[in-house]
């Protein structure tokens, strides 16, 4: 387990900035004097309290399975891929949001994109190809994706047209159970 290099940090924050509007809250000091840090272990990036990260130094790299919240994985080409486990953090400060109706929640959780007919409402002034967090109508975050059309364009779209390309959904907790945390 190690801290991130400046290049890695930039890549991770860049990806997070696609979905979140306020990044500063991520590293803001907590009331008890602690703060959150990013740690890398087995090419996975974890978002963890500094005190816990310091405790984890007593565990060898191989033995350490996970700590804190796994944000995603650094690929071998140096890119960063967000995992569904990062959803609670993304949902805190989501830049753009899409609420899907109840009839659209299941298809989304099974891994399909969001079509216009399933959209209950969406945030205004959303450009195309920008990250958005998908919520159910009861404001429960279901996953995240990338908008296929801008809000204005999506209004003219036919009901079967794709509005948001899925990136991750809560169904992955079951579908990718084996590979999500290790391997």
């Amino acid at each position: 387990m190690r801290a991130l290099t400046d290049q890695e940090m930039k890549t991770v924050l860049d990806k997070l900035a696609n979905y979140m509007s306020d990044l500063k809250s991520l590293i803001a000091p907590l009331e008890d004097g602690d703060r959150y840090v990013f740690r890398l272990n087995h090419s996975r990036v974890y978002y963890v309290k500094l005190s816990i990260a310091n405790l984890a130094t007593s565990i060898s790299r191989d033995a350490l399975l996970s700590l804190g919240t796994c944000l995603g994985k650094m690929t071998k080409t140096g890119k960063f891929r967000l995992h569904i486990t990062a959803l609670p953090i993304l949902a805190q400060g989501a830049r753009h949001k899409i609420w899907v109706k109840d009839n659209g929640a299941q298809p989304f959780l099974y891994g399909s994109n969001v079509v216009k007919a399933h959209v209950g409402r969406w945030s205004e002034d959303c450009p195309e190809h920008s990250g958005c967090v998908v919520y159910s109508m009861a404001d429960i975050p279901l996953g995240f994706g990338v908008t296929a059309r801008s809000t204005a364009e999506a209004r003219r779209l036919d009901p079967t047209g794709i509005v948001c390309f899925r990136q991750a959904d809560c169904g992955e907790y079951l579908r990718d159970e084996d590979t999500l945390f290790a391997g």
Binding site: D6, M9, K10, L13, D14, A17, L23, K24, L26, I27, V37
Partner: peptide
């Protein structure tokens, strides 16, 4: 340094 990178990226 983290805050600097963060501000830059944002």
């Amino acid at each position: 340094s983290m805050a600097t990178i963060l501000a830059l990226v944002q």
